[in-house]
Nucleic acid binder design. Structure first.
Lengths: 354, 354
DNA sequence: AACGCTTACGCAATCGTTCCCGATAACGAT
DNA sequence: ATCGTTATCGGGAACGATTGCGTAAGCGTT
């Protein structure tokens, strides 16, 4: 026999509501004269609990605004219901949109998202990864830094069976899911567009040579050149390391001094496109008359620049969503790793003035 | 008597390194023939543990790459060493920069940052807050949504002693730390600049009327008008709700149709400035000839727009840093709440073409 | 009446860590 | 010889939730 709910609530009212202490399963058990196991089972709607008891527990829990302590659950179930995301930087439209996609899906599935930034530093990335494993998150989504050559900090994780999914800046040394934009096709479309509009010599400013996406984009660039029967000139390809303004100035300088001078530039990434645009406009170079420009970027303001920047945009939000869905699949072992690790989402060429 | 380290490592080598299972304090205890309490104390460098024992434990722990399980520690210490941040949206330069500041300090202090977005929705914000308390994070940093009128979901938290710090979009109903830019001064500088360059009628497009920062900016706007002895005209102030393009079109429409027509616009926030800029350029309005424009924004590309946008920029990174420092003070009760809750950081007027 | 079965619940262990109590030596002081 | 100290360590109970196992009560069956 258990006391009536009204009686119980009358007693419960004396709980000190001014403290931070949350109500636990024990408090409920004590209040209802039940054991913690019964309360636990009642809350999880176990078949072996009497309907009336369930009702009482549920009602009391609701009134007292009971929430299971996820830390205790995590300890018991050896999981944290949190996933980590490591990106080069958050203040970048592509990544912030991707993170929004990640957060969208993750929260809906009951996961929290813990964010780390590598700031394009290998050391910071390694320390972030260390942090991530120490934190016992359930999985990791990562877009590796531009400086990262050695991915052993990640392959270690992967070999130990830790759920790991790459997006955008993926590693080709580790066999797990990778979600990227169709970089080949995007680069092809961009280059092809420039060539189709009469440009002949196209410089390519891109991220570090080791990155998979860099290679893919270079292939697309080359394929378009081939289509238009223009020989590939390696001296027109510039690899960036730190994405800064100074570095970009040097690159533009060297591009302008080649003979014959290029008549178009195809840049990769938000930051490179922006830096390039900035240097060009500072130098008073007319665009697209002197030099056409096309960016592989997700800048929100591309159409507001002057001239409006022609871009290849990536489905950042969807990339984030897809990546986190795969990660949660891995975590919850819903499906076994398929053989198709690489998932490519279509890019879009948005032709504007530049 | 304990075994030598080499012997122990020889034995430890047989641990299955291909599993995800991390080494625990128990494993160390078993391997070294000690109790868990001794190991625990040795690791925390307790005075009551023999130096030699400490050395052994530490050495073994290092070799085996032992990391204390933060979930277990959290359960024991009733804390998670994580803080939550709720912002309207991450894909916004001001907020992403602020978050970078937050992450910077928080990680250095050993806290993780869990991010939630309200997407300017009151309901989403409330559900985010619910999530946050359920997650047992140690504290909350929040910039409230534009739609939020009722802050009872936050005052509840605050009354229960939950560490809470506002930044940017603060509430004036709750007495806790608030970190903001000096909105009054920023708005004053912006308006004063416009008036000093000969403008007479200045429209003000701003966020929702209930927000504290909206009021502060309006005050700064009014003060500048007063300085130049121009009467305040309430019909020139437009409050935005959802920050969308459609809404902005209507506002610009009504601004253009007033008689006499305003000759300048002062907008608040990244999104508003951008939307306003976009509508104006779509309509082919010359700027600053027909209509001058100044934005209260942290857009990175302000100088690349055409015309380059004159802005009042906020110290977003520092706002984030300051806010999280105060929050951690609250969490660790280092200092008692002082009487000065409101902390204002200086803004900067960057004069450009518009 | 003795048995088995179902229903409905409690006990206690568990997750990894911390920490309050002891416990046990060794050693000097009385 | 007895006691108090000091130095080192272990036992075991927490923290909150989950879960395998045990079991009492109730009921029907033979």
């Amino acid at each position: 026999m258990v006391a009536s709910l009204s009686t119980i609530l009358e007693l419960g009212k004396h709980r000190n509501t001014t403290t931070l202490e949350a109500i636990t399963i024990k408090d409920i058990a004590k209040a209802l004269n039940l054991s913690t196991s019964t309360v636990s089972r009642a809350l999880r709607d176990s078949y072996e609990i009497n309907a009336e008891t369930k009702r009482l527990v549920l009602e009391y829990a609701t009134k007292m605004d009971y929430r299971p302590n996820p830390i205790a659950q995590g300890l018991k179930e050896n999981r944290s219901r949190a996933i980590a995301v490591i990106v080069p930087e958050i203040a970048n439209n592509f990544f912030s949109e991707a993170i929004t996609g990640i957060e969208d899906v993750a929260n809906a599935m009951g996961y929290d998202v813990v964010i780390f930034q590598s700031h394009e530093s290998y050391e910071k990335e390694v320390s972030n990864v260390r942090n991530v494993v120490a934190r016992r998150v359930d999985g990791l989504l990562i877009s590796i830094s531009n400086q990262t050559k050695d991915v052993s900090h990640l392959s270690d994780l992967h070999e130990r069976g830790f759920p790991l999914v790459f997006f955008d800046r993926v590693s080709d040394e580790i066999d797990t899911y990778k979600v990227v934009a169709d970089n080949f096709s995007g680069a092809f479309k961009a280059t092809d567009h420039l060539l189709s509009t009469g440009k002949k010599r196209i410089a390519h400013i891109t991220s570090s040579a080791g990155l998979y996406i860099t290679k893919e984009r270079l292939s697309g660039y080359k394929a378009a050149l081939e289509k238009h029967e223009i020989p590939f000139d390696a001296s027109l390809v510039h690899y960036c390391v730190n994405f800064g303004y100074i570095e970009m100035e040097g690159i533009i300088e060297s591009i302008l001094s080649v003979d014959p001078m290029p008549d178009a530039i195809f840049t990769a990434s938000d930051r490179l496109a922006l830096a390039c645009f900035e240097v060009l406009s500072k130098r008073g170079i007319r665009c697209p008359e002197d030099l056409a420009l096309i960016g592989f970027t997700n800048l929100k303001v591309a159409h507001l620049l002057s001239p409006a920047l022609t871009t290849v945009t990536q489905p950042a939000f969807e990339i984030g969503q897809t990546a986190v869905e795969l990660l949660i699949d891995l975590i919850e072992k819903k499906k076994r790793m398929s053989s198709t690790f690489m998932i490519k989402l279509p890019t879009e060429l948005v032709v504007r003035a530049s």
